[in-house]
Design a protein around this nucleic acid. Structure first.
Length: 543
RNA sequence: GGCCCGGUAGCCAAGUGGAAAGGCAACGGUUUGCAAAACCGUCACACGCCGGUUCGACCCCGGCCCGGGCCUCCA
């Protein structure tokens, strides 16, 4: 099935209008930089980052632009409150925004144009609109005349006549129609000089909406392939952008309009106006960026996302299985999941599943399911489900490899090498699937011990001794000491276990020795350290 | 009032005109000296309610109830 994308304009899924290999322009409305970002601000970026990753995987050449609106009423107000300047505030908040994107692994945005860098473009557009009769100056302001635009309201099904009925629209005697909106706002007395720009209509600043029309046009052209943004921007923001742009260029403004659902807390949306926002910096103190991204992608992008601490805890738990697998994978293959090649484009994926055996075939089927979901309007929720099913198969493969000989096969027992090959190829597929979603981009940090890697203790104590002396003792740091102590403890425990296991059943020492090994494990558990005795030796981890 | 969007198990959440993915929680089992981890199994005769279309609907149509969003700044 060809890629299907839901368009707000037609209210239905449509086959994507471009072919792999072609360029795709994507514009997503960014923030007005007057406050630190909250998680709601990250929904769109995470989703469209995933959209870009998937389109890239399919072979499209995507150029993605996100605007920074750095001049606006809210900025002026906030800067005054903080006793700073608008540019200084904007710069600081932009840095915060970019930092949040980086933390959530939103890496696909190609350009972040600032409104203040595009004033001439906006003035040009407004002049054109006036010349074509779509806009009119009024005492220093310039307004868009919605009655002149025949299809005004087509995105949101709004009837300009009925806009009056709402009566919540800002009233102004400068407007010809209640639904008219400002393209340019004349400077008001007392406003700082840095937000006063020269224009044919006197000093002033752009209205909200025009910056997106001007900047998307400047960087991506008259017609965008994809225009995205939050559901709450449909009206009036996108409706007005659409009206301005098409009235200016006489070209379709966007081929596809994609709107993401909003974050919900309980029964209400999360928003600055509701006052229930969760600041990202605070959030990341409690939960990993991975957990947050996983939460955002677990629900279809057009649906509201249920947000709560409980949800985050749940997601975190479900994520543990993946981390466990990554450790298993490394233990069994000696290779880190995070250094496996990432098949970024379709042509780079492992091929010829017909050559594969058993699990490898199953995983190839799962990949098909995964792609089926993604093809259907970027159904990341369904895709995440496939990830979990894939994980189960991979764990089975790990178990078979690690416990080779304990499993009975119908035909010939595969060699360890065969199993390892299957495991590696299958894991690369998982790696590719998670990478499209932008998940598991870096190895998790063992916070409690400052990045200390888990030690593996083999049952062979002689071998252990060699390992520890090879580690070296020079330059003792808290880390090397803790590491060494853990090693010591686990060595002793390994010895006890060996003794206990070899002791005869009726030997009273057997139980006594096992009691000691259990005591060590219990006391470590009290400290938050979990020991896992495996066929190849004992591993430990924090948590 | 107008315009949209939802209502799937205890919670979250996919989905298809032909007998409901996945996760969390719960329970049972395999494995383990015991654990941990992993794996297997159980867990919605049922998808807001009522009609209709159909051989057959959770999925299509109509009505109703409930919830949410937008119409004012908002990702």
């Amino acid at each position: 099935m060809a890629l299907q994308v839901y368009s707000t304009l037609t209210r239905k899924k449509e086959p994507f209008h471009k072919q792999p290999g072609e360029r795709v322009s994507m514009y997503v409305c960014g923030p007005t930089v007057y406050k630190p970002s909250h998680i709601g601000h990250m929904v769109g970026p995470v989703i469209f980052d995933t959209v870009k990753r998937y389109l890239t995987y399919l072979g499209y050449d995507v150029k993605w632009v996100v605007n920074i609106t750095d001049v606006d009423d809210k900025l002026i107000k906030r800067a005054a409150e903080l006793n700073t300047t608008v540019p200084a505030l904007a710069e600081q908040m932009t840095a915060d925004y970019l930092d949040c994107l980086k933390k959530l692994n939103v890496t696909g945005i190609d350009q972040f144009p600032k409104a203040t860098d595009h004033i001439p473009g906006m003035i040009g557009m407004i002049s054109t609109l006036i010349a074509k009769g779509y806009a009119y100056p009024a005492a220093g302001d310039v307004y868009f005349d919605v009655s002149k635009d025949k299809d005004y309201g087509k995105l949101c099904n709004r009837d300009p006549e009925q806009l009056e009925a709402g009566a919540r629209i800002e009233v102004s005697d400068k407007k010809r129609n209640p639904g008219d909106f400002a393209l340019w706002k004349g400077a008001k007395p007392g406003e700082p000089a840095e937000v006063q720009f020269d224009s044919p209509w006197g000093k002033g600043r752009p209205g909200w909406h025009i910056e997106c029309s001007a900047m998307s046009r400047a960087l991506l052209g008259d017609t965008l392939d994809i225009h995205g943004g939050g559901l709450d921007l449909q009206f009036p923001h996108h409706e007005n952008e659409l009206a301005q742009s098409e009235s200016t260029t006489d070209q379709p403004f966007a081929r596809v309009w994609m709107h993401n659902g909003l974050l919900k807390m309980g029964s209400a949306k999360m928003a600055g106006s509701v006052g229930n926002v969760v600041n990202i910096a605070d959030l990341l103190q409690r939960h990993s960026a991975e957990t947050v991204r996983f939460l955002l992608l677990g629900t279809h992008y057009r649906s509201p996302i249920e947000y709560s601490e409980e949800r985050l805890d749940e997601v975190k738990t479900s994520l543990q299985g993946f981390y466990q697998f990554f450790e298993s994978y490394e233990r069994v293959t000696g290779e880190s999941y995070f250094t496996l090649p990432v098949p970024e484009r379709e042509r780079d994926w492992p091929k010829s599943p017909q050559d594969a055996v058993n699990e490898r075939l199953v995983i190839a089927t799962l990949l098909g399911d995964y792609l089926g979901y993604m093809q259907d309007d970027f159904n990341t929720g369904g895709a995440v489900g496939v990830l979990h099913r894939t994980l189960r198969n991979l764990n089975t493969l790990v178990n078979r490899t690690e416990n080779l000989g304990r499993f009975t096969y119908q035909g010939a027992t595969p060699s360890r090498e065969t199993l390892l090959n299957q495991l590696r190829e299958s894991t690369i597929i998982l790696r590719g699937m998670t990478s499209i979603l932008g998940l598991f981009w870096e190895a998790p940090v063992k916070k409690a011990l400052g990045g200390l890697a888990p030690i593996r203790v083999t049952a062979n104590v002689a071998e252990v001794a060699v390992t520890s002396s090879a580690t070296g003792t020079t330059g003792a740091t808290p880390e090397t000491i803790i590491n060494g102590l853990m090693q010591l403890l686990l060595d002793l425990r390994a010895n006890l276990r060996t003794e206990a296991k070899s002791a005869a059943k009726d030997n009273p020492l057997k139980k006594a020795l096992f009691d000691q090994t259990d005591l060590i494990r219990k006391r470590l558990a009290d400290l938050g350290v979990t020991l896992e005795d495996r066929p190849g030796g004992t591993t430990w981890r924090v948590g």
